[in-house]
Design a protein around this nucleic acid. Structure first.
Length: 688
DNA sequence: CATTTTAAT
DNA sequence: CTGCATTAAAATG
């Protein structure tokens, strides 16, 4: 969406020209020439976005530069720019070195690898699908205009602080999404600012959705105002050309929702996305689904147009002589050495104009983290920071509850008053989710940071859980089998009590419930020591947490550089056309739970536990069960089981412990009687 | 080498 | 001059 400046498309070359012009006019500044790249950076990505054709970009650049100059934000950007420049210097040096090697007959492997890569990717090219990317024109602004028609004739922007979006009038002045409000005011005196009204946009998105569904019931919402559709079937069934189908769709959206949309039509999502920007607003563009047309289209396409290539990567590529996607080929033997294997694969697939053709509801993508963050006026007092942390933990707890996860890793993110961003993370002894747990494990990180730099002043604080563990029932265990559950007492075998209560089953690990903010150091230390000991013996519990992850097969492996996939980004879960309100999400979670409980009832009347070694269900009785496992283990060696578990785990979230340690720990409880573990602990560890 | 942190989108 | 999610790579030990 437009409020994501970093993802906007623009004509990089034009921007560069604009900056160059601007720079010459600012040569009075001492080091103006060094600010070329920075200015370009500040200018932002969307300056040549539709609606800005007649804008005097050099003037805009000048105003932005002067408005930003001297601010802490600016200083930070300056520093970032400097380090990027340094990084580019290193890249260039490396390339020269590679060229030297090549001149001596080296890099044969790279050439071969590139050949193979291209061949394989080409082999997988799918031209059979018709993918459409649709993008609402100035969505939020358009919705506001519907409510207040008088706004149509004046420049206005939506979003306070920074512009989320603005109408086309405002764009004529150089305003754009992502721009600081005060900068926009300088560009466009009298600019009207409207606050965001998400409910309104959501309602409108729903109207659009009802139309989209008719064309592809499984369309993928990429954000509130963007979606991908696969219209292959629709075109067949209605005997329509893709272009006609999309014209019709656009007309229908306009009739039904009173807003205009732009569309891109191509053989894959990557190209469709680029196309939707070509005839914006209220237009569409198609790249024919044949190899020649696609390659021709890519040949002169600036790299920056591609999703996943942003301002930094663009500059890096530019430095080595890659300005357009067509330029990639000539540099193919250097790419993996300069940018890594993933980037290499990504770039080659971009050059070939490949992209994913599978479009599916965003809800089907697996969530990898849940987090929250907020910006505020500089804070520095320890008490206030703690208060903020507590609040952040509360916010995160809500999200964790709503989404039904706990996290094995907790990340604290802070932004200093200087805009420097730092993060610290810990692996609590078990998956966390309640505000007490979150606070408890986050606070030491905060404290450590405070100690590291005195007078630490923050402008942002955030908490995020990763390595998620579902608290929904009915998941599959790490041996790939669905675990049997029984409702009686066995209901708790899931061990993931909901509702943020800090009672802990089995007394396995009691979490202080009270306010331990000022807990004395000694107690803290004892606690930590205990936890450390427990952590060691708790591998099985962590393992069990892992068991609750979906099976590997259900996991979609997406990467920014996934040659076949669009870059996975925040929008997956963005509040798109598939927007799910908090209530809906809770309802969905509840439904999932009901379904799982239903499923849990069916298999057995008596409680049974599946043996993790042989898979045969055993009576749910501890002694006998452990005896059975010992029997199983003596047949297969421990080594074997370790290997097999590792194989299964490999596709999952990274391990909480080094693999070598994990192996040892995993084997242990079944070997002897818990190696110091209590029976209780052992049971929890095993079946939790 | 694996894990943690940062940087990037 | 926001906020959220994700990933790759660098730094670290």
């Amino acid at each position: 969406m437009e409020r994501m400046p970093r993802h906007n498309d623009d004509l990089a070359a034009e921007a560069e020209d604009a900056v160059a012009t601007a720079a010459s006019t600012t040569s009075a500044l001492p080091d103006a020439s060094q600010h070329h790249t920075l200015k370009y950076h500040l200018l932002g990505p969307s300056l040549t976005k539709s609606g800005q054709d007649g804008v005097d970009q050099s003037k805009v650049s000048e105003i932005i530069y002067n408005a930003s100059k001297g601010s802490k934000y600016f200083t930070n950007e300056e520093n970032k720019d400097k380090s990027l420049t340094a990084k580019i210097d290193r890249i260039l040096a490396k390339k020269r070195e590679l060229q030297r090697i090549e001149a001596q007959g080296g890099l044969k492997n790279e050439l071969k690898a590139a050949e193979i890569c291209i061949e394989e990717l080409e082999y997988g090219r799918d031209l059979s699908q018709t993918i459409v990317h649709i993008d609402c024109d100035a969505f939020y602004a358009a919705v506001e205009e519907l409510d207040r028609p008088e706004l149509k004739d004046v420049p206005f922007a939506v979003g306070m602080g920074v512009l989320t979006t603005c109408n086309y009038h405002a764009r004529k002045f150089g305003c754009r999404s992502g721009m600081a409000g005060f900068v926009a005011d300088k560009l466009c005196p009298g600019l009207i600012h409207l606050p965001l009204n998400f409910e309104k946009y959501t309602a409108k998105a729903k109207e659009v959705r009802t139309v989209l569904e008719q064309y592809d019931p499984r369309f993928e919402s990429a954000s509130m105002d963007e979606a991908y559709l696969n219209i292959t079937t629709y075109c067949q069934e209605h005997q329509l050309s893709p272009e006609d189908a999309v014209s019709q769709l656009r007309a229908q959206v306009h009739a039904h929702a009173k807003i205009t949309i732009s569309a891109g039509i191509a053989a894959n999502a990557r190209i469709a996305k680029i196309c939707s920007n070509k005839n914006k607003p209220n237009g569409q563009f198609l790249v024919p689904s044949d190899r020649a047309s696609i390659l021709a289209f890519m040949r002169h396409l600036p790299t920056r147009k591609v999703n996943g290539i942003g301002r930094v990567f663009e500059r890096e590529l530019d430095a080595i002589g890659v300005k357009t996607c067509g330029d990639i080929y000539a540099q193919r033997i250097y790419l993996s050495r300069l940018f890594g294997e993933k980037a290499f694969n990504f770039l080659v697939s971009v050059h070939l104009g490949l992209g994913r053709t599978d479009v599916r509801p965003a809800e089907e993508f697996e969530r990898k983290s849940v987090g929250t963050e907020s910006t505020f006026h500089d804070l520095s007092s320890p008490a206030e920071l703690r208060e903020k942390l507590r609040w952040t933990a509360e916010e995160l707890e809500k999200d964790m509850l709503r989404t039904g996860f706990r996290g094995r890793t907790l990340v604290l993110k802070i932004k200093l008053h200087s805009y420097e961003v730092l993060s610290r993370q810990v692996q609590p002894p078990r998956a966390v989710g309640t505000k007490e747990e979150l606070y408890r494990f986050a606070e030491p990180m905060l404290e450590k940071l405070e100690r590291e730099m005195d007078g630490m002043k923050l402008r942002l604080m955030g908490l995020r859980c990763t390595h998620l563990v579902s608290t929904k029932k009915g998941e599959v265990d790490f041996f790939g089998r669905v675990r049997r559950r029984v409702s009686e007492q066995g209901a708790e075998v899931d061990g993931q009590e909901r509702g943020g209560v800090d009672v802990d089953e089995d007394g396995w690990q009691k979490w202080p419930t009270g306010d331990e903010e000022f807990e004395d150091a000694a107690r803290q230390e004892r606690q930590e020591e205990a936890e450390e000991t427990e952590r060691l013996s708790q591998q099985y519990e962590q393992q069990e947490d892992e068991e609750q992850d979906p099976p590997p097969s259900a996991q979609r492996q997406t990467s920014k550089y996934d040659p076949d996939g669009a870059p996975s980004d925040y929008r997956r879960y963005g509040n798109g056309f598939a927007w799910r309100s908090i209530l809906e999400e809770e309802a969905a979670a509840a439904a999932a739970e009901r379904a799982a409980e239903e499923a849990a009832k069916e298999p057995v009347g008596r409680e049974q536990w599946d043996c993790p070694i042989c898979g045969v269900p055993q009576a749910a009785e501890e002694k006998g069960f452990n005896a059975h496992i010992d029997g199983c283990l003596s047949r297969r060696t421990i080594k074997e089981i370790v290997r097999s578990t590792d194989e299964v785990s490999e596709n999952k979230a990274p391990m909480a412990v080094p693999a070598s340690t994990a192996k040892r720990k995993r084997g242990r409880p079944v070997l002897k009687d818990g190696g110091g573990r209590t029976d209780q602990g052992r049971k929890r560890a095993f079946f939790a």
